[in-house]
Nucleic acid binder design. Structure first.
Lengths: 210, 210
DNA sequence: TGTACATCAGTGAACGCGCGTTCACTGATGTAC
DNA sequence: TGTACATCAGTGAACGCGCGTTCACTGATGTAC
C-alpha cells in the first residue's frame, strides 16, 4: 500500500519499485472523485511522484490503464460476492449478505465501480470464458441454491436480472446523491433487502390484488 | 427542428435566428453519443455552423448549457410520465404505461437522460419548489392511486423508491449494453413490468416461503 | 415611404492551458566471470 | 569479492492538439422620425 517514495522531494531512489500498482491505485482514487472521463494520466503521475512518461513503461496508454483498473475492480467485486456466498448462516442470510456486499462495494470502491460500468469492453454479464465466475453468475447460482423450489415457473435468470437491476439502480442513485436522505428515510441497504425479498416472493404471480 | 442555416457554406443570413435552440439540440446529440464528459462546446458550434464564440451570446458558458439541457430533459420526462398517468385505461394499465414511458425516455433520449443524472445541481427527487411535480412525485402519486389499499403497512414512498431504482437500473444497464440480449432473453420492458408487480405485491411480506 | 441610428447577434483571431504521447537520455540494478 | 556490462525503469524536454474563453470588430435588424 505504502508507496516506496513518500512524496515529491523525498526520492528514496531513482527507481520507484512499485510504480504499476501505485498508478492503478492513483487511477482508482481519481476515477472515484471525477469519474472515468475526468481521469488524467498527468494527475496520476503527479500523485505518484513520477514523470507522465514513466507510465508508458507499464501501460500501452491511457485506455490500457483504465482497462486494468476495470479488471481489478471486476475481480475484487467477484471475490467479495463469493465470500458472502460462502459465509456462514442460512442460505437466505448468505444471499442477503451478498446484496449488502454489492452495495458496499459500490460505496467503498466508487472508482472500481465506475471503471467497470463506464469502460467499454468489459461487460459484467457477458463471460468471455473468464477464469472465474462473473458476478452475475454468482448471483444466479446464489438465487438457485437459496430458493431451490424455484419461482413459480419463472426462470431464475429472469429474477436474477431484476435483482441485479435493482441493486445497480440503488447503487448508482445513491452515488449520484439522487436518493433522498434524512431522518425517516430508508437507506439503500434496507431498500435492497426488502426489494429483493419482494422480487423473489412476488415472482410468478399473475396479478396484484388491487 | 430544421436549422435555419443548412450547413457550412450555405449561410442564409448573418444571423442564425434560432441559435439557442440549435445549440441545445446539438448538445443533446453529442451527450447521447459521448456522455456529458465527452461533450464539447467546439463540436456543438461546428455542428450548428457557427463560431464557438457565438455561444456566449446565449449561455454563460459550458456549464450553463449543460444545466439547460438537463432542465429540458427533466421537463420532457415529467411530461411523458404525466401523459402516461392521465391516459385511458384502468389504474394498473396507466401505471404500467408510466414505467414503459420511463424506459422509453431513457432509450429515445439518452442525451437528456445522461444530462439529468450526470449533471450536478439538478437532482431528480429533491424538489426546490419546482413549478411542476417532479418525476418522483408523479411516480408516488401514481402508486397511491393505483393501489389505494396500500402495501401492507409499508410506506408508499418506500415502494416508490424501489420501483424507481429498478427502473433506473434497467435503463442504465441497458444503455451500457450490460443487459444480456438475444433470443430467449427477456427485454427490459418485460423485466420492469414483472418486477414492479412483484415489488408491489411482495411489499410488506415478512419472509419468503423458502 | 425613406433615412439615421441604436441595438443585437454574429465573426475571427488570439490567449493560455492541460492533455496524451514520443524520444533520446541516464541513473540504478543485477548478472557473468 | 570485485569489476564489466547488459538490461531495466526512470527523466526531462518537446510536440501537436483541442479545449473554453476573451475581445474588438462588423453585418443585419428594427425603430424613430
Amino acid at each position: 500500500m505504502r508507496p516506496w517514495r513518500e512524496g515529491p522531494g523525498d526520492r528514496r531512489s531513482y527507481h520507484h519499485g512499485n510504480l504499476k500498482e501505485a498508478l492503478i491505485e492513483a487511477a482508482r482514487r481519481f476515477i472515484a472523485e471525477r469519474g472515468v472521463g475526468g481521469f488524467t494520466l498527468v494527475d496520476a503521475a503527479r500523485l505518484v511522484g513520477v514523470t507522465p512518461a514513466a507510465l508508458y513503461r507499464h501501460f500501452r496508454g491511457r485506455e490500457a490503464l483504465l482497462e486494468e483498473v476495470a479488471g481489478r475492480g471486476f475481480t475484487d467485486l467477484a471475490e467479495r460476492l463469493a465470500r458472502a456466498l460462502t459465509s456462514r448462516g442460512t442460505p437466505l442470510e448468505r444471499f442477503t449478505r451478498m446484496g449488502e456486499a454489492y452495495l458496499a462495494f459500490a460505496e467503498e470502491e466508487p472508482g472500481y465501480y465506475a471503471a467497470i460500468f463506464e469502460t467499454r469492453g468489459a461487460p459484467m454479464a457477458a463471460s468471455d470464458v473468464p477464469p472465474r465466475p462473473s458476478p452475475f453468475d454468482l448471483l444466479l447460482e446464489a438465487l438457485k441454491s437459496t430458493f431451490p423450489d424455484g419461482f413459480g415457473g419463472v426462470e431464475p435468470r429472469f429474477v436474477a436480472l431484476e435483482v441485479w437491476a435493482l441493486s445497480h439502480g440503488l447503487a448508482t442513485l445513491s452515488a449520484s446523491a439522487h436518493l433522498p436522505k434524512g431522518p425517516g428515510m430508508p437507506d439503500k441497504y434496507e431498500l435492497l433487502r426488502a426489494g429483493v425479498l419482494a422480487l423473489v416472493h412476488g415472482a410468478g404471480r399473475p396479478r396484484p390484488s388491487a
